[in-house]
Design a protein around this nucleic acid. Structure first.
Lengths: 335, 335
DNA sequence: GGCAGTCTCTGGAACGGTCCAAAGAAGGGC
DNA sequence: GCCCTTCTTTGGACCGTTCCAGAGACTGCC
């Protein structure tokens, strides 16, 4: 009843278990007739190697764990695609776990992964508890993708360059003729980088005085509320740069509810180029954070760190680009 | 350098490895001073049990694999939540893999999971290749969640009741006074159930002649195109019931592009109650497919099947309900 | 025929846990 | 003091692989 083992295969093929092992690992120096006999036995018995036994013996799992911060906000799918492609080529499998799902259960997912003795760990986005990552990084090669924190001794960081991204968005609006531009800020290190770059860009164009910042929380609701606040000001901005697409969607709702037409009365720019922004009905101008490339490079960094665990931590920034769609245009008064 | 093992802990605590094992598994009949010594040693060494060794010895992994069909369409997040909660209580961990990500790599993820010797497998949504599931189900207890296929001997199915859901949506529109109602159909078994129920409901209300069906493909693009076709008919429908939210968003775009105001000129109903439909800017009337409950029950079924692998396959349907939001209203001519 | 050198193949020792039968310690009754 | 029980603790077998040293078989050369 229970699954066949390598010994069953060996018995069936009339060889030793060692030879079966050799055949399955593709070693050369095995006579063709024996190789065939082994493969036939494998086929007949439906044999599948036991990953646990293998990893116990090999002392590695050929598996990397990927920690997601929240699957509800699916900006990371392309990142995973990039990651997976590169890791797969290197013979590594990818297992996912969502921190948000398990948070309320009080479980430390990184812990699950270190128990599994994964060969590496990738944290995607900013995790709620930096301690988790610090502890995990002490045990297993770790890379942070698409976040700028936590900064830890042996943990590489791969992300898009938020300074450039925010500048692209802001200069796009300035280029269209906007002067009164607001920013709805995000949270954490990434939020701060985007906000500062927005401010710096406005300053560089002599628009420091007409730059406004409202705090958001990266959710639609937060974007909506922040925009309501912005639009109730005496001096209304003619354009809003939102810290992410979700926020931007909230801003869009608030604008239309106030009777403004986007982009005629108000221009909006998001960030991340999620599939949300690509929905025809939303069609947001946004900054593409080069997710897939971030994923590929994160995988690369992880492979390097697995090969050489002691190397110094690196920060690897990918250049984002602007994706102009339907929510931006010249300001109402003609600039 | 390498991770401490149970023997290191035993040596440090001055006891045998067996005793360490007993303490860690919470056995009683261990003297308090020894228990403390062991726990102290564990703490000092930062010992973590090796999951591979444990599962090899215990002959189970306390892990279930979850196969997702496509993370890009995140209707399943709440389902995972329900699943995870129940499985966690039963001492099982959940590992995710996305079939879509790996498809082009030609990898059989179910294979990865069976190699890992997971204790169970849950397929979420309809998987591209039914053969994958058939093979996997021969090795490990398997449950399909939120799909109606493939139907296999020892595989339970848990899903929302599409017949009821489609009827709710259709009757909602009829109740508002609509008579010319179109359906944009989905694919596979689920698509067929929804379409047939739509048709049956129309028939039951004597509206068989004014029921129209256009084929979609569950994507925004498909919904858009189908709606363009619908709206270019001589006799335009006043309401559209879309097979899922994504399709409905496409329909929304097509409607507005045609100059129609939703819901004044055209009513729209989606299906799944994804967070998309909850975005203020879309605010779709939709059928809630009770995802979380489906997840909980799927977990329950899996636990039962793990306990008793031979039991007959069951189909467990959860009752969906209507979520009325902003895209439905009375027909233009007043009904 | 003997011997070195290849080429194939094999048995047994890991890997790090769990489990179990049995050993050892402690306590009670005579 | 001895035997019997009960309570704790232990050594060793085992889970299913990989890895390695070395065993056999065969070849070619002197």
């Amino acid at each position: 009843m229970s699954a066949p083992t390598i010994r069953d295969v060996a018995a069936r093929a009339g060889v030793s278990k060692s030879l079966v092992s050799l055949v399955l690992r593709g070693a050369d120096g095995v006579r063709e007739d024996k190789r065939r006999a082994v493969l036939a036995a494998v086929e007949e018995l439906g044999y599948q190697p036991n990953a646990a036994a293998r990893s116990l013996s090999e002392r590695r799992t050929r598996t990397v764990g990927v920690l997601l911060n929240d699957m509800r906000n699916p900006w990371f799918v392309e990142l995973l695609d990039g990651l997976n492609r590169r890791l797969y080529d290197a013979g590594l499998r990818m297992l996912l776990a969502d921190g948000h799902l398990n948070r309320h259960l009080g479980e430390d997912l990184a812990h699950t992964f270190t128990e599994l003795h994964v060969d590496g760990l990738i944290a995607v986005g900013t995790l709620p508890d930096p301690g988790v990552l610090r502890r995990a990084a002490g045990r297993v090669p770790t890379v942070v993708a698409s976040a700028r924190e936590p900064v830890l001794p042996a943990v590489d960081i791969v992300a898009n360059d938020d300074v450039i991204g925010a500048r692209l968005a802001t200069e796009h609006l300035i280029g269209l003729g906007h002067r009164d531009i607001a920013h709805i800020a995000g949270q954490g290190a990434v939020g701060e980088l985007r906000r500062r770059s927005f401010e710096a860009t406005m300053r560089a164009h002599g628009l420091a005085d007409s730059a406004v910042v409202e705090q958001g929380d990266l959710t639609e609701e937060g974007g909506y509320r922040a925009t309501v606040r912005l639009l109730s000001r005496v001096h209304r901005p003619t354009a809003v740069f939102a810290a992410n697409d979700m926020t931007c969607v909230g801003a869009l709702s608030a604008a239309e509810e106030t009777g403004l037409t986007v982009p005629r009365d108000l221009s909006l720019v998001g960030y991340d180029n999620t599939y949300l922004s690509r929905l025809r009905h939303l069609w947001l101008t946004t900054v593409d954070n080069a997710s897939e490339e971030v994923g590929r490079r994160a995988a690369q960094r992880l492979l390097e760190r697995i090969a050489e665990p002691g190397r110094a931590a690196a920060v690897d920034l990918v250049t984002p680009f602007l994706e102009v769609r339907g929510t931006t245009g010249p300001p109402p008064s003609g600039g």
